[in-house]
């Protein structure tokens, strides 16, 4: 592995992302929503600060669930297929560089851009929260930020897999949007429906929900912010009781798996393509 080449591709991807209007639009919208969410507050009277802080943070969880997968999936999906379509990738691959180096460089570059957006959003929110005395929740906030970063990387990784498999950018973007709908809405709706219709046991519902990386992020963030999962009802309590101290490591491992597995598969698909691009 030539890390100079990886770094070079990463820099190129990052530069491209920072010049990409869609990326800037995503960043502005995300930052704006975070700002608005953080600034919403009721009159400051005793005992409300913590609740307001928690409410803001859980609002951020919701925002991340909606926004980050969309951004990461679409950018990931167009990462390879876009250059494949223009022919730039084919030309790049005629140079002394491996496909693995190209993939990793692209991933790191786009990941840096994505994480930059997240850091910006969470940084802005944190500054505002700090003016309202959010010191007690600092560790939870940091954990949530970290989990949001992992979710972003996981979704980017899935986007790369889509991109490696698709021949056209339009196909890749379509698949990415479909997957976004599936992960954010359809999957949960289906599971809710199934849980109601089949009277699904709590543990089954929980385990099926945990297949979705968005749920992993959500549960980990809520746990780190509120120090309990009671707000998620019986399934949350079951998760606390069953996993105990292993809960957070489990969530972490789940998200890391969601990063590594699709990226590995993307590399496999990209290497098997063998079509010069």
């Amino acid at each position: 592995m030539n890390f100079n080449a990886v770094w070079l591709i990463a820099q190129k991807e990052l530069r491209d992302a920072l010049r990409n209007r869609w990326f800037l639009l995503y960043t502005v919208i995300f930052g704006g929503l975070v700002l608005a969410l953080s600034m919403l507050s009721r009159p400051d009277v005793e005992f409300t600060q913590l609740a307001e802080y928690n409410r803001t943070v859980t609002g951020l969880v919701n925002l991340v669930l909606l926004f980050v997968p969309l951004m990461a999936l679409t950018f990931g999906a167009s990462s390879i297929s876009g250059e494949r379509e223009t022919g730039a990738l084919k030309y790049l691959l005629t140079q002394p560089i491996d496909r693995g180096e190209v993939l990793l460089g692209k991933f790191l570059g786009l990941a840096s851009a994505q994480l930059s957006t997240l850091m910006l959003g969470f940084g802005v929110a944190g500054v505002i929260l700090s003016t309202r005395g959010g010191g007690d929740g600092l560790s939870g906030y940091v954990v949530m930020t970290g989990m949001a970063c992992l979710l972003s990387l996981a979704m980017l990784s899935v986007g790369f897999l889509i991109s490696a498999l698709a021949h056209k950018t339009s196909t890749a973007l379509g698949a990415a949007l479909f997957l976004w709908l599936l992960l954010v809405f359809v999957g949960d709706l289906g599971l809710i429906g199934a849980a109601i219709v089949t009277q699904m046991p709590t543990q089954t519902t929980l385990l099926l929900a945990m297949v979705n990386p968005l749920q992993l992020f959500k549960m980990a963030s809520i746990f780190s912010t509120l120090s309990s999962l009671e707000v998620l009802g019986p399934a949350g309590l079951y998760a606390s009781d069953t996993f105990g101290g292993m809960f957070m490591p489990l969530m972490l491992a789940g998200l890391v798996l969601w990063i590594l597995l699709p990226l590995g598969l993307a590399q496999f698909a990209f290497a098997r393509k063998g079509d010069g691009g």
Binding site: L18, T117, S130, G133, G135
Partner: peptide
């Protein structure tokens, strides 16, 4: 009335996050 107290630790971490957000700019 609760007068807001500045959470300096949160502020420091948040500024750190903003610094990290700027890092990619420096990279390119």
């Amino acid at each position: 009335k609760q007068s807001s107290t500045m959470a300096w630790s949160t502020l420091a971490v948040s500024l750190g996050l903003l610094g990290l957000a700027m890092l990619p700019m420096l990279m390119v």
